[in-house]
């Protein structure tokens, strides 16, 4: 069990003949993901590590059965690739590409909502449901099957947190990187909601960073709708205002989007915030223990 991707995932790789696309197509296949096709205009009829390549998404979906696509095409073509996937009926689109113009993404966001498709990213590492499927670029070697859901705006910081969990023998149901841009298709609350509903997920790790107010929105959502233990980490406490910290979305504008505000909002919602990613497993264990005791005590009261 997992969220968004699982054993039933049938994946098309858009931009499969590029350097990143071909490398990761192979990695995903090796991990056990069912990669059914690749698409690169002008390269139809060829194969990449045994995966058939088509010129268009339209052709690909008439020849193979697919429900998910992952995009590795360069920024000038990424938005079009998203539209192409959504228009042939793909319901889960993962865009890895970094550098997509934010204004384009506003239009894409409105479009996918209207079409009822899910977009993850852009500028994200994708997601992995250990033992089931991997879509994107997360290293399969650091994950372990289990019941912790991980959601993050970051890439390598997510790996750090996952690795800490794995070392503590706390496996994961799904690890998802939602992306570091200002406008992304899937937000914290979408993932929190999915993890809450997912039976195999027992607790959630949420990794945020400076910029925007998605963490604050998530804190309110957790307080109202999430019954499973959540532990958070927020990056960028020492980031100066007005500077873009690598991610396009990681910027403190004026006085809004600071780490301090986000930590305060999460604490207020009862979510403990770790001081270092390596502290996450212990805090999570503690929260899970408390949640269990609470359950037991409410049962005895009854």
């Amino acid at each position: 069990m997992s969220i968004f991707i699982n054993k039933k995932t049938k994946l098309i790789v858009q931009g499969i003949t590029g350097r990143d696309g071909s490398f990761h197509a192979e990695q995903m296949k090796k991990y056990g993901t069912e990669v059914v096709a690749g698409v690169t205009p002008g390269k139809g009829g060829t194969t990449v590590v045994g995966i058939p390549v088509f010129n268009t998404m339209e052709e690909a979906v008439t020849r193979v059965k697919a429900n998910t696509s992952v995009i590795y095409v360069p920024p000038p073509y990424a938005v079009d690739a998203i539209y192409e996937a959504v228009d042939v009926g793909i319901k889960t689109v993962v865009c890895i590409t970094e550098g997509v113009p934010a204004n384009d993404m506003m239009k894409v966001y409105a479009y996918i909502k209207e079409k009822g498709a899910r977009l993850i990213g852009p500028n994200c590492p994708g997601l992995i449901s250990p033992g089931e499927a991997k879509v994107g670029i997360m290293p399969g070697t650091i994950v372990k099957k289990g019941n912790i859901g991980v959601v993050s705006r970051s890439g390598t910081l997510t790996y750090e947190a996952i690795w800490a969990l794995t070392l503590a023998d706390m496996g994961q149901s799904t690890c998802i990187g939602i992306g570091g841009d200002q406008v992304i298709g899937t937000n914290f609350i979408d993932c929190l909601d999915a993890f809450e509903k997912d039976r195999s997920t027992k607790a959630i790790v949420m990794i945020g960073e400076i910029g925007g107010s998605d963490e604050e929105t998530a804190a309110k959502f957790i307080k109202k709708h999430v019954t499973k233990p959540v532990v958070a980490f927020i990056a960028g406490q020492t980031a100066p205002p007005g500077k873009r910290m690598g991610h396009a979305g990681a910027i403190i504008s004026g006085s809004s989007g600071t780490a301090a505000d986000k930590i305060a909002a999460l604490n207020k919602a009862g979510v403990p915030v770790a001081g270092s990613p390596t502290e996450i497993p212990d805090i999570l264990k503690d929260s899970m223990k408390k949640a269990k005791q609470k359950k037991v005590s409410t049962k005895t009261k009854k």
Binding site: S154, E209, M245, A259
Partner: peptide
């Protein structure tokens, strides 16, 4: 010197911590 924006920010934060 770090790889990844989130990890780079976290590294700075830990230096301070």
């Amino acid at each position: 010197i770090v790889n990844g924006a989130g990890l780079a920010m976290t590294t700075m934060d830990l230096v301070k911590r």
